[in-house]
Amino acid sequence: MHSSYTRGVYLMCIVLRMSISHTLLGLLEAGPRHGYDLKRAFDSHFGQDRALHYGQVYSTMSRLLKNGLVEVDAVEPGGGPERKRYAITDAGVTDVAAWLARPEKPEPYLQSLLYTKVVLALLTHRDADALLDVQRAEHLRLMRELTVRKTGGDLADQLICDHALFHLEADLRWLELTAARLDRLASEIRP
């Protein structure tokens, strides 16, 4: 019990770290920004319960630079990391597109990541409806698997599968509600 909880939290940290680099990359797609400007944009869209540290921005940027997903497009006189202006590269745009198009593995703690993806799809003028549809299909695929397992299983299987099914159902409702509210969300985040 304890170790599976720990594993869950550990996984969540990985998910968050991976999503931060994609999120910053997605924000850069809208236009080049300085590090402090990136942090401000991140915090205003996604920072409700997790404001970024400057350190995270700079360590993420240096990793993205190394991987060729961003480049420094201007340096203001004076030097220091806070003087660099970052721009997304073509490889970076491809990376954001692939990330947005790929459904997430349905699991707990997913909601904030899906929310981030929807907002970024809207900010970068991609098809947010399609993103939600792909995720919806992925959730239902897993629900189908669990239903087959439940139908053939004993009571313990049934109870365990039902628990997962009710949680996935809640996720799906959120996906549907979000799909129905996309126009409103779009007008709020890009006035």
Binding site: P103, A130, D133, V134, R136, A137, E138, H139, L140, R141, M143, R144, L146, T147, L165, F166, L168, E169, L172, R173
Partner: peptide, 25 residues
Amino acid sequence: SRVAAYSHREVVVRDGRARDMAGAA
């Protein structure tokens, strides 16, 4: 969705148009 999970495949109707979700995944 828990009822739909008994199906082999789902089709989503939006505004009078049916969309086969096998193509979306």
